[in-house]
Amino acid sequence: MTNFIFALFPDEASARAGLEAFELLHVAGDITLFNHAIVQRGMDGTLVVLERETAPIGSGVGALIGGTAGLFGGLAGLGIGAATGGIIGAVLDLFNLGVSKEFLSSICKELVPGKTAVFAEASEEWITLVDARVEAFGGSVIRAARDDFIEDEIRKRVVRLKREVAARRAEFAARRTEKRLHALHEVVLRSEENLRKAALDAARHIEQYREESDAKLKALHDQLQSASPATKARIEQRIIDLQTDQKQRLAKIHDALRLAREAMEA
């Protein structure tokens, strides 16, 4: 299972030691660490990135940090904050990641000024492995699975817009002799344009998600090459799980694109 991990530590030294423990778990094959960052919340409330390793699989943790920073009021040194529309961008970033409001609420509550945390995205079967390492350095862990409700929402949006286009076209056809004909035609065109934009968003999401999941699969295969016999089976199962997740998520978006094409071609 791929999780977002938020590990809160009392200070920077503990956070760095905790991250090193994550990396050792990765080397041993006990987890697969896809990307990570160490952040510290300044006394002014903004986030400072102390260490960041997100390439080539950086969309998860990077967007999580950016979204959280936007809600806090800024990300020092990167120009992300409320002054540049960060609140709206933060909500969108976090929505697109599929994180729950409970997870976000916990981060906002726990990451108070002066605290240091590790943000990570990892595949892990047993949460106790990470939790025990973090607790050994005086830290605590909050985690959340990456849900697929963004794919569900994309499809719901396309279905709704498809119905709206059909309704506006039907209304236009039934009332074409009235004075509001031109205005009604403009409404039809706007509905069609909204549907086209939704289809483009879906296509972009496919490209972004495929790039990210393919990079994760590569990381898992690379890890498999050096894994001990005891951990190979677990890594192979992570690969199967990620491939299954990829197939299911992409199927939802491809179905949304199919529905959009049907409406635009009608």
Rank of each mutant, 00 (worst) to 15 (best):
A7Q: 03
L8Q: 04
D11H: 15
E12C: 03
A15F: 02
E20W: 10
E20K: 14
A21D: 11
A21F: 08
L25F: 05
G29E: 10
N35Q: 13
H36V: 09
H36E: 05
Q40V: 05
M43S: 06
D44A: 03
G45A: 01
L47V: 04
V48H: 13
V49T: 05
E53Y: 05
E53W: 02
E53Q: 13
P56Q: 11
G58K: 09
G58D: 09
G60F: 04
L64S: 08
L64G: 01
G67F: 02
G67I: 01
A69K: 01
L71Y: 01
G73M: 04
G74M: 09
L75P: 02
L75F: 06
G77P: 00
G77V: 02
A90Y: 11
L92D: 15
F103C: 12
L104A: 03
S106G: 06
I107P: 00
E110A: 14
V112K: 11
V112M: 07
V112R: 12
V118S: 05
V118E: 06
S123T: 08
S123C: 07
E124R: 02
R133W: 00
R133T: 09
V134H: 04
E135Q: 14
A136Q: 12
A144W: 07
A145M: 11
A145W: 10
R146S: 12
D147E: 14
D147Q: 13
D148M: 12
E151W: 06
R155V: 08
R157P: 01
L161S: 05
L161G: 05
V165H: 02
A167W: 08
R168N: 08
R168F: 11
E171N: 12
F172H: 13
F172N: 10
A173C: 04
A174V: 06
T177G: 00
H185K: 08
E186Y: 00
L189A: 10
R190D: 12
E192A: 08
D201T: 00
E211T: 06
E212R: 15
S213E: 13
D214W: 01
D214G: 00
A215T: 01
K218W: 01
A219S: 04
A219G: 03
A219H: 01
Q223W: 00
Q225G: 05
S226N: 11
S226Y: 10
A227K: 02
A227M: 06
S228M: 05
P229K: 07
A230F: 03
T231L: 07
K232F: 03
A233K: 09
A233L: 11
R234Y: 06
I235S: 03
I235H: 03
E236P: 02
E236W: 00
R238P: 00
I240T: 14
Q243N: 12
D245Y: 14
Q246G: 01
Q246H: 09
Q246R: 14
A251D: 12
K252G: 08
H254C: 03
R258K: 10
R258H: 07
A260V: 04
E262P: 00
M264E: 15
E265R: 15
